[in-house]
Nucleic acid binder design. Structure first.
Lengths: 327, 327
DNA sequence: CGCCCCGATGACAACGTTGTCTGGTTCCGG
DNA sequence: CCGGAACCAGACAACGTTGTCATCGGGGCG
């Protein structure tokens, strides 16, 4: 900036005035300054500007499990979209479900003075965020609630969605329904299991521990447990899958098998409608999750200080016909 | 920081020494300072630190078409992974193929003094980056080359990949092969078309303008053109699709049709192997693209000043059997 | 002609840090 | 008992900006 000032024969303050479009600069002077800026390729340093003005940094931190996962990347995109209307940039970080990593990222973002944090919690301990939140950093948790702080949270209706899946299957006569889910210490997994159980109760389906399988996360693991669910004296005739990774593993395990159980998966995925048979799913909108979270965050930034809110977004059962396939 | 200093009864410099783990602070003093930091929830301001030290901001800018697109989100993840080993954070922005938006994002990132830029070009004019690059900002272009600057670029072998697809189809006896691609002003689209043409020449397949369809980007558009390709006196018996969006549109258009043309798609996609018939694809690795770009960038940051490089990553034809389905 | 006001510009401090240098103890060896 | 190292701690400036206030002409008005 001082280089520009020297070249234009003015003081740096005048340069500042020009780059900020402040009134009260003689057009001819402004001309000279602009020419100097152009010639030197000057670009003002936003960090210094924000430091001096005490204004926000214009950035948002987003912490999630894996940016590479389509579900989260769509969420990120939605956040970015909202941030853009506010002229803000988005910093992302993947925690890989590691609470330590999540914490590290969050504190790093705080040190960068992001205006707010959107977090898909990896662990159950978020006490480390308390000082930041007290200092005024708005934090919104998405997809799962925080462990031990009260804060704005956006969730999907895991229980209702899974119960709907059971209802859908029961309506088609299935009485032996298996459930495959993530490890039960993951919030969404235990909620969906609860929804499964409630759905069974509501739809008059006998619920049995022997048909609940939590935690397999490899294709081989899913295949093995599936074998167990479909064997035995009273085999399952239908399966509810707790998330799209498991659904896909399951599809591979079932591929080429003559008689397949009916299958309803939580989470939609591309091409589900083109498979044979098409897969029914409990659909929920990652994009809407992201938008809701971002909007909640911006409301806080604009001074909303009402008590923390918990938003639960609905799910939608998309029946694609797989349910009708009886073994 | 001055609050901490006051509470601990020391000068702010001593606080600085403690937070930076500098030697020469009495253990008892350090103890007091740490207690004060803890009590006040102090977190040092990284912007101010970087400003004062003149060091890098520890951030990278990534500009691509759409973070929500699985291809780019995997790329982003790979960049993040490399950045992490260097203790750097990633700022992302989606250009939506709008050159103006790309420029806006790039300049904004530069004003934030990111350490480097990874760009999937939206347009063909990148002259606006010249001053930044001269000022030492390393820029790596990914997936498509820059319009009018020479810089490091990472591409995939669009021509070879598409030619392979033609070869694969020709080897199975197809003589009438159609090509569906993006609008020809998109670099990858025109390259793949060129690969298609070269593949035809090399494999002895007659190339005809009447079987080339560039630019459809809706399902209806693809369906209509497909109708044309598969009708007429000399219908196509096989189709090469220029990217995975088109492949998916095509699959929907073909769904339920009794006789389907053989299909090879550029870009792999999840579940391609579970469709009936499974879809053969020209596979290329978004993750590798991202990693290569990030590594190139970091090499520049470490002072590598060799002439700009152009890296072309290979593609791999994954034959899944769709090619063998003759109409 | 003198006064005041206004338009244009600059000097200086401050944002939150850290590098440099200096001041003040303490402790050791001579 | 003194010189000087070793150790601690603070004062001050600077990073690149911008807010505040002061300065300096010139023109309009009484």
């Amino acid at each position: 900036m001082s280089d520009v000032a020297r070249l234009a024969g003015v003081s740096i303050k005048t340069v500042s005035r020009v780059v900020n479009d402040e009134a009260g600069v003689h057009p001819a002077t402004a001309e000279r300054v602009l020419a100097a800026i152009e010639r030197l390729g000057f670009r003002r340093n936003l960090s210094a500007r924000n430091l001096r003005r005490g204004s926000s940094t214009g950035t948002l931190g987003v912490i999630l499990e894996d940016v590479g996962n389509p579900f989260y990347s769509v969420l990120t995109r939605a956040v970015e979209e909202v941030a853009r209307t506010q002229g803000r940039q988005v910093l992302t970080g993947s925690s890989d479900e590691d609470p330590g990593r999540e914490r590290e990222l969050a504190l790093e973002f705080c040190a960068r003075r992001v205006d707010g944090l959107i977090v898909v919690p990896a662990g159950m301990q978020h006490g480390y965020l308390v000082p930041e939140m007290q200092a005024g950093m708005p934090v919104v948790f998405v997809d799962r609630p925080a462990g031990d702080v009260v804060a704005d949270t956006v969730l999907v209706d895991n229980i209702g969605g899974t119960a709907d899946a059971v209802k859908h299957l029961a309506a088609q006569g299935h009485q032996r329904i298996a459930f495959f889910g993530d490890a039960p210490d993951i919030f969404t997994a235990s909620e969906r299991l609860r929804g499964f159980r409630e759905g069974c109760a509501r739809s008059g389906v006998r619920y049995g521990e022997d048909l609940v399988f939590m935690g397999p996360h490899t294709e081989a693991g899913v295949a093995e447990l599936l074998e167990r669910a479909l064997g035995g004296p009273e085999p399952a005739t239908a399966v509810v899958s707790g998330n799209n990774r498991i659904t896909v593993h399951m599809l591979r395990a079932l591929y080429g098998r003559p008689a397949r159980p009916a299958l309803v998966g939580f989470d939609d995925f591309e091409l589900a409608d083109l498979l044979n048979p098409p897969i029914s799913v409990v659909q929920h909108d990652a994009s809407m999750l992201g938008r809701a979270a971002a909007e909640l965050l911006f409301a806080r930034l604009e001074g909303d200080s009402s008590p923390p809110r918990r938003v639960v977004l609905p799910t939608r059962l998309v029946a694609r016909g797989s349910g009708e396939v009886h073994p």
